[in-house]
Design a protein around this nucleic acid. Structure first.
Lengths: 355, 355
DNA sequence: CTGAAAGCGCTTACAG
DNA sequence: CTGAAAGCGCTTACAG
């Protein structure tokens, strides 16, 4: 049985005493088959364990029932959650996933990757790469040449006239900063992600808006750039303290940098949250057990993955493809983040008790 | 240009004034083509941007150049690292990846998944599912029926007569426990993973051996079962303290539970490492900035992913497939873990200074 | 409701 | 070194 030659539709047809055509109708659930015939063919299929060859099916149908997923940083929290959700939803809808990882955030090797995806005749491409540097320009140039529907996830909202789903990153910055101000903070610093990242800039933008809206002046020296790593969060805190000893709150643009900031606070003898409030972003599994437990901003990543698949499926099904012309702005959907309050930040009630 | 019909080999042939056959030779780098002809065809291909249809190629060759990867828990540290490494190595070697996620660890839905994989004519399957409960029996029963090479990753070493690559989990337990004892610990508890997991049992086994080898008696009540989550680590610590107030070291079977144990130590007023040494497993990105920084055991996960692809490629290339008969025990390779010493555990020198 | 024919885009022997 | 023919395993119109 091992390595056995696989059955073909022809053999099933012969065994059932019908044409291959009829077997095809049965396995595709076509309506026009006599119930009795259907049952007979079905019986043979079940007995023999016949499985249609998707390569052959793909060749005739001109589609592979596979979605190409291009991702950066599968090791990280966000991407891995999104990909997991995409896979589950895709499986649910009958798609396979062709996983393609990108190492750097530059557009090197992307041409090769897209070429592979086209070769494999994927039905659509989900592009889960953050907008970094010249990415946007690249997508704008090449995005429309792709012979299949493309869906942008996470970054590049409104870019290149392609549909997109992501998180409102400015809202993340606002949520975190408003919370810190509401807790009584007067000097709120921010540790950003790499400034070349669109997400990082948007979170910073939210911080700016909120600081300004509260009537404070936006001091540029309160902005320190990190690189998403724990260590960069720690170093950022030291620089911040040096420039602004009066600092009493930090918004770190992800949980790892928030952890670094908390660590730095411990090292320099600052109590969190009494001396320094800290808020992160992501709500990683560990966040609830940091010391102190981390206040952070949750992003609905699984929802994004699910929706991405639903939207692209819809695009695939639109035959003939509606002209996704420049005039019609494609849908851009941004989901709202959610604040998760824990002990690393002073809350209104708490601070009044403490003081 | 958008949604343009794709070129076929026939059109390239016509443009180059040769037969499709010759174009096929060129794109497959066959030797027997006149240099001049080769160049002419190549020029047409480059000018037109022709890309061969892998579905058609797969149909004729009987292989898809795709590897099926079945994974549990992509959200987690281990699996995401391994998958990332697999994808990179596979791309390097010309394979695409069909990603298939499993939700639970039971064998539900696995049949369906394998059926899909067969349908898609994958060249081989990399099975990165931990050995849990009846998994092993299931694999033993069905593993050999698969019509393609299968490679086990991470779990089920030596199971089902299939080749396997993983980590020596008993060595992880030994490494951690020896380190704790060397640091002067006299009462070393262990927080295990779920006892249905083979990995968890192996790490426990390493702990047992080491405790016994050091001349201590193995007290079963020092063994507390966790479920890999931070919270379970915290709860486990409380139970351990209750049963054994004299406890002075804990080996947590992953970093998250180690974090939970540290958290619980703080809560109960114990200093780490002075009162309680803690060691974890994984060396997640955050571990270096826990408070205190976590001593942990690193697993060479990327290496595992790379090797898995190399081995399965070799199996695929073996044509005709050597009889992988029951008599020949297939290769099982276990890589060695590595201890990463930080501040959460007393080291020999340190403890002598402290005391 | 069912089947014979043609074709999807390649590659594999087989001639020359 | 090159090409005409057949075929991979399906599905798509088209008859009946």
């Amino acid at each position: 049985m091992t390595m056995a030659k696989r059955l073909t539709i022809r053999e099933v047809a012969a065994a059932a005493g019908v044409s291959t055509q009829t077997v095809s109708r049965v396995i595709n659930n076509h309506p026009d088959v006599a119930p009795e015939t259907f049952a007979r063919v079905q019986a043979v299929i079940e007995k023999t364990g016949y499985e249609p060859n998707m390569l052959a099916r793909g060749l005739t149908q001109g589609r592979s029932h596979v979605l190409g997923v291009v991702v950066y940083g599968l090791d990280y929290f966000g991407p891995s959650r999104v990909v997991a959700a995409i896979e589950r939803q895709a499986a649910e809808m009958g798609y396979g996933i062709s996983l393609n990882l990108i190492l750097g955030t530059e557009s090197d090797g992307v041409g090769q990757m897209l070429s592979n995806l086209r070769s494999r005749q994927v039905d659509g491409i989900i592009w889960a790469i953050p907008e970094v540097g010249d990415n946007r320009a690249w997508m704008r140039t090449h995005g429309r040449d792709l012979p299949v529907p493309v869906m942008l996830v996470g970054g590049m909202a409104g870019v290149a006239c392609l549909p997109c789903i992501g998180i409102d990153n400015a809202a993340i910055g606002r949520l975190a900063t408003e919370h810190l101000l509401a807790g009584g903070a007067r000097h709120v610093g921010i540790v950003t992600g790499p400034r070349t990242w669109w997400e990082a800039e948007q979170r910073l933008q939210g911080w700016r808006e909120t600081i300004a809206a509260a009537g404070h002046t936006v001091d540029e020296s309160l902005i320190i750039e990190g690189d998403w790593t724990v260590d960069s969060g720690e170093q950022a805190l030291y620089r911040m303290i040096e420039a602004h000893p009066e600092i009493d709150a930090v918004f770190a643009s992800n949980d790892q940098m928030a952890l670094g900031a908390i660590y730095g606070a411990h090292k320099t003898g600052r109590r969190v949250p009494e001396d320094l409030s800290v808020v992160g972003v992501d709500n990683i599994a560990e966040a609830s057990h940091f010391w102190p437990p981390l206040t952070t901003v949750h992003q609905p990543l699984a929802e994004i993955g699910v929706m991405a698949v639903q939207v692209i499926d819809q695009m695939i099904m639109e035959t003939p493809p509606l002209r996704r012309s420049q005039e019609v702005q494609p849908e851009v959907r941004l989901l709202e983040p959610e604040l998760v309050v824990r002990d690393s930040s002073r809350s209104v009630r708490r601070s009044s008790i403490v003081e």
